[in-house]
């Protein structure tokens, strides 16, 4: 790639990984092929430090203020927010469904935990997604079959998001998402 490498500026606090924000709009009436999905998803910005993140994020629209079929994605640089990416093809995601009004504060807490390496699952985290319309968040990891990792991600989410009682959570492998692209399935976890 000819793009200039993003590095932390002087006196800035570097992050463990560079991250890229992406934005996409869903077209609900048409089933989405991976090709049209890729065309529909746009890179916004890549950052390498805490300060670069805030310079962008402070001016960004909050998920709670957006309407319609929009997703924001925040992924490690080099990982596309697509099932087909090498980092994602054996992976899965936690789905967290929230009540209206909680989307913006929870999204911020989720991404701060990710940027600050609070999950402590090595290289496993790929990125996070907020789907505005359904007030849903997803956190994607590399290895869906690694139950110790997925349990640890769940426990960290519960801590850092301070999830209210009756929050619905479900883990779904990307393979299952491809086969059954609907939303939440029958196996849900309710935090009490």
């Amino acid at each position: 790639s000819k793009r200039k490498a993003v590095i932390p500026g002087p006196a800035e606090h570097p992050l463990q990984y560079n991250y890229t924000f992406w934005y996409s709009r869903r077209t609900p009436s048409h089933p989405t092929s991976s090709q049209s999905y890729e065309q529909n998803i746009k890179q916004i910005i890549t950052f390498a430090s805490v300060e670069q993140f805030w310079r962008f994020y402070s001016h960004m629209v909050c998920p709670g203020d957006l309407t319609g079929h929009s997703d924001f994605h925040l992924f490690k640089e080099g990982i596309k927010p697509m099932w087909e990416d090498d980092a994602n093809k054996n992976g899965g995601k936690w789905i967290i469904q929230l009540w209206k009004g909680l989307a913006s504060p929870c999204w911020e807490n989720l991404i701060l935990a990710m940027l600050g390496e609070q999950f402590m699952v090595g290289e496993e985290i790929c990125g996070a997604v907020v789907f505005v319309r359904f007030q849903e968040f997803y956190i994607w990891n590399k290895t869906a079959s690694d139950q110790a990792t997925t349990a640890r991600i769940r426990d960290t989410l519960q801590q850092v998001l301070n999830l209210p009682p009756n929050t619905i959570m479900e883990y779904k492998t990307h393979t299952d998402s491809i086969k059954m692209p609907g939303r939440l399935g029958p196996q849900r976890l309710l935090f009490q």
């Binding site: 500026g9 006196a11 800035e12 606090h13 570097p14 992050l15 463990q16 805490v50 300060e51 805030w54 310079r55 402070s58 807490n109 701060l112 935990a113 940027l115 600050g116 390496e117 609070q118 850092v160």
Partner: peptide, 21 residues
């Protein structure tokens, strides 16, 4: 190797730093 970790409180403090604006 060492991982660069930041807690939420620290990250929020950085938000107000002059170089983050």
């Amino acid at each position: 190797g060492t991982r660069i970790m930041y807690d939420r409180k620290f990250l929020l403090e950085c938000k107000n730093s002059p170089i983050a604006r």
